[in-house]
Simulated assay, not measured.
Amino acid sequence: MNLLVRYWWIIWLLGLLVFALLRIPHGPLAIPEVPGGIFDHQAAGSAAEVNRIQQAWGDAGLLGHAQWGMIGDFLFIGLYGIGATLGGMALRRSFPTAGMVVAAAGGIFLVTDYAETIAQFIQLTSMQGDDGLARLAATMQPIKMVAFGVSFLGILALLVVRRMRNRAG
């Protein structure tokens, strides 16, 4: 068995650790003008809304938090997405269909969250909203959230079922 597939859980857990650490730069972005923080930026959907959010963050001195948060997101997306995809592939040995669903969800998460975050980062670094990029990010957000949920809960469920099977057998 390929070492990456065999040790997928290390990559996956590192991704989850980065996700937890991202609360540090992302947390302060939730201000009264932008109560959803980074999620509001992802879902903005228009250049005008992106500009309003970025202006509010700028006025609050939070642009550095937003930039570092998005840079951290790139690391999280890669680690978690690859880990979840490899996890699904590894679990496919015991659960052929469910493992493929998890692997596909991990891949979908990887592609959609990178598309969303790249679109956000371009707008943030240029300090200029763009309707096309804002729509792209807003379109990708719900897809990546569902893919994350399916891959995360799927991995947990398959690990529990596999453990129960091993104990019973």
Rank of each mutant, 00 (worst) to 15 (best):
A134Y: 11
V50E: 02
V111M: 12
A103T: 07
G129L: 08
R93A: 15
E33K: 13
Y114A: 05
W9E: 07
F152Q: 08
Q67I: 14
T125L: 13
E33Y: 01
Q42V: 00
Y7T: 03
F39R: 10
G64M: 06
V5K: 14
A119M: 08
V34W: 03
E116L: 12
L86V: 07
G83Y: 13
F152S: 04
I155M: 10
G15C: 02
M89H: 05
G69N: 11
V111C: 01
I38G: 01
Y80H: 03
A56K: 05
G149C: 03
P28L: 02
R52M: 02
R162I: 01
V50P: 04
L29A: 09
A84Y: 09
F109H: 10
G99Y: 09
M127T: 12
F19Y: 12
E116F: 11
L13F: 11
G87W: 03
R6W: 02
S151R: 03
L133I: 13
R52C: 06
V160A: 15
L156I: 14
F74T: 04
I143W: 07
N51F: 00
S126F: 04
R23D: 06
Y114L: 13
G45F: 04
Q128P: 00
A43W: 00
A48V: 10
I53D: 05
P32A: 09
A66Y: 00
G132Q: 11
W57A: 12
G72K: 03
M100N: 13
G45W: 05
L86M: 12
A147D: 13
G88C: 11
N166V: 06
F109N: 07
M127K: 08
A115Q: 08
A134D: 07
G69H: 11
P96W: 06
V50L: 09
S126N: 06
L4Y: 14
R52A: 13
M140L: 11
G99V: 04
T97G: 03
R23K: 09
R52Y: 02
G15I: 09
P142D: 13
G132H: 12
A168C: 00
W9P: 00
F39P: 00
W57I: 11
A47W: 05
I118W: 14
G27D: 10
A105L: 02
M100P: 01
A56I: 05
I11N: 03
Y114D: 10
S46W: 01
I31Q: 06
R165H: 06
L136R: 11
D73W: 06
L29T: 12
G78C: 01
M89V: 12
R93H: 12
I10G: 00
Q123W: 12
A56L: 04
P32M: 03
V160P: 04
T112A: 15
T139P: 00
Y80E: 05
R52P: 09
N51P: 05
A147H: 13
A84I: 11
L153F: 15
G61R: 11
L62V: 04
Q55R: 15
